[in-house]
């Protein structure tokens, strides 16, 4: 039978009373309750697959940007990936893989209708998601401390640069006190920031779209100001993170791509965790059983996709070489 679903019945209701009334409007009793459920389940599943396709394309756009920029400027990615800690990345991969397993088990338990086990596996999956986000938090805060922000807020200077900047700043402060009567006196108080940019190596334009040579542009100005204001004095880098070579032009682009990809993925993990909570509530109401497990099944599909995207992200970003 087809054409006889009660689509306006929400998923969870459809398993209950409405099945009996399903008969109205077409030849009664022939449409068995189970038949309806099956059609509805298939519709839901097809819908979810289509939704996952859009998700893949959403990330696909970002992966395209990654590919294009990497093809144009491979050195940038070799340089940038040194700042990403493979150990954390690998741990996160394991965490997500494990959570996929528990999610799959949750689906199985939902099919069997074992309420407590469903909830147990959902909780484990949720905790894995939380762990993943915790590790991401650790990684992100490290980046932020080092000034590895995306885009124009990018403020990283390697140790030598930072050291020089600090000395320069002290020098300028001394000068500031002695040269107050110059016409630019008012500007002088701001000078250390402006001076910081002199330290930027005049990197030659690289890649397909090198920025116009404007030494006054974002990168310089912003970088030293942030560094000076906050982190320069105590700048202590984990030696293992020291990049192999000089900072390439457009270093910020790597981190833009890194934060966009992992950020969008992180948002999806958070949405997934929210979904787990919702599924736990449904499960605790005893809604799932052999006849009705659509939400868990669809949630599982979503979670596997989120997992799968990370499986791609990890080597692309962390294991460049």
């Amino acid at each position: 039978m087809s054409g006889d679903v009660q689509p306006q019945d929400s998923n969870q209701q459809a398993g209950h009373g409405d099945g009996h009334e399903d008969g109205h409007g077409h030849s009664p009793y022939q449409a068995h309750h189970f038949d309806t459920m099956r059609q509805q389940f298939e519709a839901g599943k097809l819908g979810m697959w289509l939704f996952l396709a859009t998700e893949v394309l959403l990330f696909g756009g970002l992966f395209c940007f990654y590919t294009i920029y990497k093809a144009n400027d491979p050195e940038l990615f070799k340089w940038g990936h040194h700042f990403l800690d493979k150990r954390w990345g690998a741990t996160n991969t394991m965490v997500l893989l494990f959570s996929s397993l528990t999610m799959a088990l949750a689906v199985r338990e939902a099919q069997l209708g074992r309420k407590n086990r469903i909830i147990f596996f959902l909780v484990v999956t949720f905790l894995c998601g939380a762990g993943f986000m915790g590790i991401k938090y650790v990684e992100y805060s490290k980046k932020f401390e080092e000034g590895l922000f995306p885009g124009k807020y990018f403020a990283y200077e390697n140790v030598v640069d930072a050291e020089e900047a600090r000395m320069h700043e002290q020098e300028q402060q001394k000068l500031a006190h002695t040269e107050l009567d110059l016409p630019q006196a008012k500007v002088v108080t701001e000078l250390p920031k402006a001076q910081g940019l002199v330290l930027q190596p005049a990197t030659p334009p690289m890649g397909l779209a090198a920025p116009p040579k404007e030494p006054d542009d974002h990168g310089g100005g912003a970088s030293s100001s942030v560094t000076d204001a906050g982190h320069a004095p105590g700048l202590a880098l984990d030696p293992s993170h020291l990049p192999p070579g000089p900072r390439p032009a457009n270093a910020h682009v790597f981190f833009s791509i890194y934060f966009c990809l992992t950020g969008l993925h992180g948002i999806h993990v958070l949405i997934g965790m929210g979904m787990m909570v919702w599924l736990m509530v449904l499960a605790s109401q005893g809604r799932f059983g052999p006849g009705y497990f659509t939400p868990v099944d669809l949630g599982g599909l979503y979670w596997h996709l989120v997992d799968l995207i990370w499986i791609y992200l990890f080597p692309l970003l962390y294991l460049v070489e």
């Binding site: 016409p183 630019q184 008012k186 500007v187 108080t189 701001e190 402006a194 404007e214 006054d216 100005g221």
Partner: peptide, 19 residues
């Protein structure tokens, strides 16, 4: 910050407009 628009300022603004 602020400054007087003198020759140095004008020439700097032309050379490095984003400063």
């Amino acid at each position: 910050g602020e400054s007087i628009a003198d020759e140095a300022y004008i020439q700097e603004s032309i050379r490095f407009p984003m400063k």
